[in-house]
Design a protein around this nucleic acid. Sequence first.
DNA 1: TATTCTAGTTTGTAGAACAAACCAGTTTGC
DNA 2: GCAAACTGGTTTGTTCTACAAACTAGAATA
Lengths: 101, 101
Amino acid sequence: MGDLPPPIDPNRLVHEPGRLALLAVLNAVEEADFLFLMDQTGLTKGNLSSHTSKLEGAGYIEIEKAFVGKIPRTIYRLTGEGATALQEYRAHMSGVLGSIE
Amino acid sequence: MGDLPPPIDPNRLVHEPGRLALLAVLNAVEEADFLFLMDQTGLTKGNLSSHTSKLEGAGYIEIEKAFVGKIPRTIYRLTGEGATALQEYRAHMSGVLGSIE
DNA sequence: TATTCTAGTTTGTAGAACAAACCAGTTTGC
DNA sequence: GCAAACTGGTTTGTTCTACAAACTAGAATA
């Protein structure tokens, strides 16, 4: 059964499953490339690209474009702001889920 | 830091914050009317109406329209299916959140 | 009988996720 | 050395959906 829930108002930027997956992966590894992120999140290239752009725009991740030899290689990292947002999301949703049942 | 997260694929019908709030409230009280739900969830009338319709369409809640004297009174209840979906969502998201940090 | 209140539903719009198409550059096969 | 295929993405277009505003039917009020 459970108590009445607290106000539910998660950060929508984090709440979206695709982006949550991205942030969670980057939180775990702290550095990843495009293919690794595709593999881990199950996102298509297009979605991964647009989600990473959105997260970069929010300052939650940073994107570093470099070359390894002649092959372009893009590295993604969580920023401090992104880590904070993820932790806040986690705390918020833990509270919500805890009120259920 | 945290481990790599498990596949993240929450039930979208439940994941949407407005509907999650609705389900969580109904899970706590097991019966509620329109105004109580508006108050508890913070949803506007229009959104509450459309979210309840969607949840009813999914079989997650039942809507009983009755009259108290001459005033129509609509009662909302969680169904067994809805309770199951909510518990599954809770389990899924708990696993995801647990993998963070 | 006109006005307002209650309890919703319907409608219109703006935003966002998603997949498909596209693109620049590189490697491989013939 | 030219074409075809692969890498590593970005851009574009469509569909879905949340949201708020406008609407509605009936009841109480004045």
